[in-house]
């Protein structure tokens, strides 16, 4: 059954085979995508025509590699800007929320806590459409009552940021709260006794203690925002983020440039994931 009990050879081997198959299943699509980014063929498929870096470096006229593909490069820059804004905003508000829920007592705390968890059970698509609707309603309201046209309420960069922020903050709050629960409050009391101001205590002591969790949550927020598709789909304006841009390309047929972008994404996220694992290990 388990490690400490005698097991038959057949049992062990069948389990090992199953796990091997499972990991093959897990990595097959990623591996194939990466390998075909270097295939010297105009379609991302076999047979293998030889190794090439064209899909990264070629500058035309037959092939345009990723680094000369303006549309994809612009989408990458947009995604970076979005993810940066979202991760900063959501770590700030998420940290405030975790302080609020872990350290303060007030009326309606239960209701507010439930609302904070709500984005976990709202499908991303619904979040997207309801924010699109609300922004539209708000835009119409301001237009009719004050006669001013506000850019933010139309599908645009900032609407995407707000849409992603609204559910990513919940994840940040949960991560930071978990760390805050391990905090020894006598440290704060000691600092207060020694004459520190409440804000000074938070800045010099509590936030110092929370730093690994905040950095880790920020990294996760960055990734979630960078890769978000469902919510962004409805809020995106004239500047598509990378997942939206890739989706449009995949839907209309594929070139190995998509593989090249995917390879960059796989390498980038793996690195960020490993950094995050390292930080969470350090935090514990």
């Amino acid at each position: 059954m388990i490690r400490s009990l005698p097991r038959s050879k057949a049992y062990d081997w069948s389990f090992r085979c199953f796990i091997l198959l499972y990991f093959a299943f897990l990595f097959a699509p990623l591996l194939v995508t990466c390998v075909l980014a270097f295939n010297d063929s105009n379609f991302p498929s076999l047979p293998w025509q030889g190794f090439t870096l064209d899909w990264f470096l070629a500058s035309g006229p037959d092939r345009i590699g990723l680094f000369h593909d303006d549309q994809n490069l612009r989408a990458i820059v947009t995604s970076f800007k979005t993810a940066l804004c979202v991760s900063i905003l959501s770590t700030v508000v998420g940290t405030c929320a975790s302080f609020l829920f872990e350290k303060e007592e007030f009326r309606f705390k239960g209701v507010l806590y439930f609302l904070m968890l709500a984005p976990l059970v709202i499908p991303g698509v619904i979040l997207g459409i309801s924010q699109l609707l609300a922004a539209n309603t708000a835009g119409a309201f301001f237009d009719e009552t004050f006669g001013i046209d506000i850019e933010v309420f139309r599908p645009s960069f900032w609407l995407v940021v707000l849409g992603q922020f609204s559910f990513i903050t919940t994840f940040v709050t949960l991560v930071v709260s978990a760390r805050l629960r391990k905090f020894d409050h006598s440290l704060e009391e000691a600092a207060l006794n020694l004459g520190a101001t409440p804000l000074g205590v938070i800045w010099h002591i509590t936030l110092k203690f929370l730093r690994p969790a905040i950095v880790g949550a920020g990294a996760v927020a960055f990734l979630m925002s960078f890769e978000n598709f469902n919510t962004t789909l409805f809020l995106v304006g004239s500047e598509p983020t990378l997942p939206i841009n890739l989706y449009l390309q995949v839907r209309d047929g594929s070139t190995p440039v998509i593989n090249a972008v995917s390879l960059m994404l796989i390498v980038g996220t793996s690195l960020l994931a490993l950094v995050n694992v390292y930080f969470t290990k350090k935090a514990d």
């Binding site: 699509p29 194939v32 498929s45 890769e227 598709f229 997942p243 796989i266 793996s270 994931a273």
Partner: peptide, 24 residues
């Protein structure tokens, strides 16, 4: 955990080039 950090779109795309008629 590693594959799940990668965008869902990339994973679906990987399956598409594996499984389609002209696929791997």
């Amino acid at each position: 955990l590693l594959p799940f950090w990668v965008s869902e779109l990339v994973r679906v795309y990987g399956w598409m080039i594996l499984l389609r008629e002209s696929g791997v």
